[in-house]
Each structure stands twice: as C-alpha cells, then as structure tokens.
Design a protein around this nucleic acid. Sequence first.
DNA 1: CATAGCAACTATGTTTTTCATAGCGGCTAT
DNA 2: ATAGCCGCTATGAAAAACATAGTTGCTATG
Lengths: 115, 115
Amino acid sequence: MEDPEDGRPRCDEAVSLAFSVLGKRWNGMILDALSGGRLGFSAVRRAVTGISDAVLSDRLAELTGVGLVSRHVDAGPPLSVDYALTGAGENLIPVLERLGEWASENLSESGSTDR
Amino acid sequence: MEDPEDGRPRCDEAVSLAFSVLGKRWNGMILDALSGGRLGFSAVRRAVTGISDAVLSDRLAELTGVGLVSRHVDAGPPLSVDYALTGAGENLIPVLERLGEWASENLSESGSTDR
DNA sequence: CATAGCAACTATGTTTTTCATAGCGGCTAT
DNA sequence: ATAGCCGCTATGAAAAACATAGTTGCTATG
C-alpha cells in the first residue's frame, strides 16, 4: 500500500511539471522574448542578453521538443529560420506577465548578481 | 547614449528578474512546497522529491537571501528549524497556481525525462 | 571580383553547478 | 546502550553552461 493523500505536504505535480521546463536557465526568458512574435536565431540571442549560441541552440531545440515553440525554415535563397510560440506557448504569456509584475513588486534588483 | 525603445524585441526586465530566481532548478518547487505553511528541513526535502541535502541547503539559503523565505530556529531542547514564505513569497502563490494550471493543460507529462 | 559581414549553427575545451554519498552533533525512542 | 531522526556540512564525481572559434551560404561594398 502506498499512502494516498497522507497529509504530508508535497510540491504540487503540476507546478513541478511546469518547472521541469521553466526551471532551467533561460527557458522562461526565451519564451518571453518570443511573446512579441516570431524571431530569427540572432534576434532571440539579442533579445535574451547574456545567452551564448550553443546554449540558445540547445534551448530552442528543447522548447521545440516539448511543443512550446515551432521552428520554421524559409529556404529563401537567403535562407532564414524563425522561431515562434505555439498555442501552448502563447497560453503561457499571461502567466509570464503576472510573474513579471510579481518580480518587480517583490524582488529587489540587487540581491543576486550571483553566478 | 543607449537606445531607448529601439523597436528591437527584448525579454522583459521584470520577467528576467523573476527568472533570476525561479529559473534555477528546484527554487519554484521549494516555494510551492512551502505554500502550504512552514516546514522543517527534512519536510521540505520530502515535499520536493529528488532534491539532495546539499542542494536544498544551498537553495534555502539563497531564497532566504532574496527575502522570499524566512528561517526560524527554535532552540528547543529538541532543536528545530523551520522555513516559511515571507510576504513576498506568499504573493507568488497565486502565480504558481496559474503556472500549474498552464502546465497540466499544455505540457505533456512525458516529453522531458531529461537530466 | 575580392573582402567583409550577417545568419544560423556546430565543435571544442574550460569553468560552474549539481549531484550522490558520507559524516557529525544533539536529542529521543526502544 | 543502540539505533534513528533532524539539520546540516564536506568531498569528489558527473553534468550543464560557458566563451570562443569555425563552417556554409548568401549579400553588401569597394
């Protein structure tokens, strides 16, 4: 027998699921950057200050993998690739806004110039 | 002179600030675990499945440092320490709930058994 | 045309984080 | 007395993130 609802506090599964993607560095910021519309690789890099090419490439692939971002290639001739939020990704936008409000009201700019 | 609103998309500063703390592994889950009330070190560890002592210790110090969690020691004799959300931390709860809803509606359980 | 530059990545090697495991001092339950 | 829980800290290994350089394809400049 396991213990079904044993009263012991636990982190909510859904929240845990959310942070399996948002709890990794940059992911939230990338999604936020894309909330304004589709962007090319370099545009995302510029929007998310501090991220490196290698990591960005990795993150975009990951976000695409979980279905929050879609990748679209236009074989021009001037080949161009752009990334955009999927429906699931767009649903996150309002939550990100709430998060932003919370941060600016409850988190001091200083505090963690860590890393 | 910098470029004030130059039209180029950028990740919102507030969101970026939020993820400077929530974008680190475990932090969001720890805060969620504490949303139900104060907990001792081991209780948090049990609530956040998978975290190790060393990392938990680190994260709690960090969250305490940015003012989201408060640490309270009761020198019993049976010495006990507990952690609780501060006002700032509590303000995050509703946002975490939104995040949870979003995750269960838009994120598939599978997908990233990463790490 | 040659040189330089941008876009979109990949490759390489180093630095940081995160991790599992072990241990410690104080107290309690058996 | 022995074992066990609580709240941590120490240690070394594994994984992630990082800066930097290089690649291919196309364009803009001289």
